[in-house]
């Protein structure tokens, strides 16, 4: 057990270190930018509507009068206490904006994550067990088409077909325009999330299916599959292939979090879905550095968290690690 705990602790420490690295990199990149947020926003509504204290704090953060190292350390100190600063665009604490946006995006990303994972696994195993035959060709063709298609263009097409021509689904936004937040029904929410979630899932499937196919094809060539066939086993895919593909599939599934988060940036922009991705674009375009920094750190935390979860689950599922740790 001590072994497992040490492993977890080491992974956690690495994750924290990586997060620090991400925040520092993002900070330095923004710091290097010739687009000065205060300059860009001077005279704009965002800055005009701020209280003098807020502007003063902003200048502390982004002003040229303090060295970058000191500014980063101050940001870090605040961030560790749960204060990511004030968003220039939304005039709210960054963490509040992120929380609100993330709750919108989470619907989208979770459904796309589950759907693309399940579908990708099924298609990948189907193609891998029938390598070179028509199911394999079909799946590979689908993956090629989808991974070559810009996801935002696919979103545009779906929008054109379902919202403009057929008129059966709304054009965008998480809720109907003008509706009170509290008065929105679950059904309305769902209707607005269908197209973005569909786009994200359809694009996410390709990568998972292709990688699962490789792993499956690899497993199919192992000696134990040969032996199972020689023993006249009938449920080889269920009994042996799935069992051996499960671990790599798990890693893939958790690694796809980053891709789905990246895809949501584009898809949310097309559907004007008020999620985290759209906020990132707005923050970038409006030089809202505190918000962009916050979103970057939170997204990276999700990605690293996914990797950590995969590592830990591996230790629980893989008998070689599990029994190895028990000392047998």
């Amino acid at each position: 057990m001590g072994h497992r705990l040490r492993f977890t602790a080491r992974k956690l420490a690495r994750m924290v270190l990586l997060l620090l690295g991400v925040s520092l990199t993002a900070f330095l990149l923004m710091n290097a930018s010739p687009l000065d947020p205060l300059q860009t926003n001077v005279g704009q509504a965002a800055l005009g509507a701020m209280s003098p204290e807020q502007i003063a704090r902003l200048e502390e953060y982004w002003g040229v009068n303090t060295p970058a190292a000191e500014r980063y350390l101050r940001w870090l100190g605040d961030a560790l206490r749960g204060d990511f600063g004030i968003s220039l665009l939304y005039r709210q604490p960054v963490l509040e904006v992120i929380g609100q946006r993330l709750s919108n995006s989470l619907w989208l990303m979770a459904s796309a994550w589950v759907l693309s994972g399940a579908l990708g696994l099924a298609l990948g195993v189907l193609a891998g067990t029938r390598r070179g035959r028509w199911p394999d060709r079909l799946v590979r063709g689908y993956c090629l088409v989808i991974s070559s298609t810009p996801s935002f263009w696919l979103a545009l097409l779906l929008l054109m077909v379902f919202s403009v021509w057929l008129g059966i689904l709304p054009i965008g936004l998480a809720v109907p325009i003008g509706a009170e937040h509290a008065g929105v029904t679950l059904l309305q929410r769902l209707r607005h999330a269908i197209l973005p979630a569909l786009t994200l899932s359809v694009t996410g499937v390709a990568n998972i299916a292709l990688h699962t196919r490789e792993k499956t094809a690899d497993v199919m060539e192992r000696d134990y599959i040969l032996f199972a066939r020689a023993r006249g086993e009938t449920a080889i895919v269920r009994r042996h292939v799935l069992r051996n593909v499960a671990l790599p599939a798990l890693t893939l599934q958790f690694a796809s979090i980053g891709e789905i988060a990246g895809g949501s940036v584009l898809v949310e922009q097309v559907f004007s879905y008020p999620g985290l991705g759209q906020a990132a674009v707005s923050a970038g375009l409006g030089s809202d550095m505190p918000l962009l920094l916050g979103i970057t750190v939170v997204t990276a935390a999700m990605v690293f968290g996914g990797n950590l979860a995969a590592d830990l689950l591996y230790g629980v599922i893989d008998p070689r690690i599990r029994r190895g740790a028990a000392g047998t």
């Binding site: 192992r222 000696d223 134990y224 040969l226 032996f227 199972a228 020689a230 023993r231 009994r239 042996h240 069992r243 051996n244 499960a246 671990l247 893989d318 008998p319 070689r320």
Partner: peptide, 12 residues
């Protein structure tokens, strides 16, 4: 069939 060795057993 009695195969060559341990690689013919499913490791999982």
């Amino acid at each position: 069939l009695i195969p060559q060795g341990v690689t013919y057993l499913d490791p999982m």
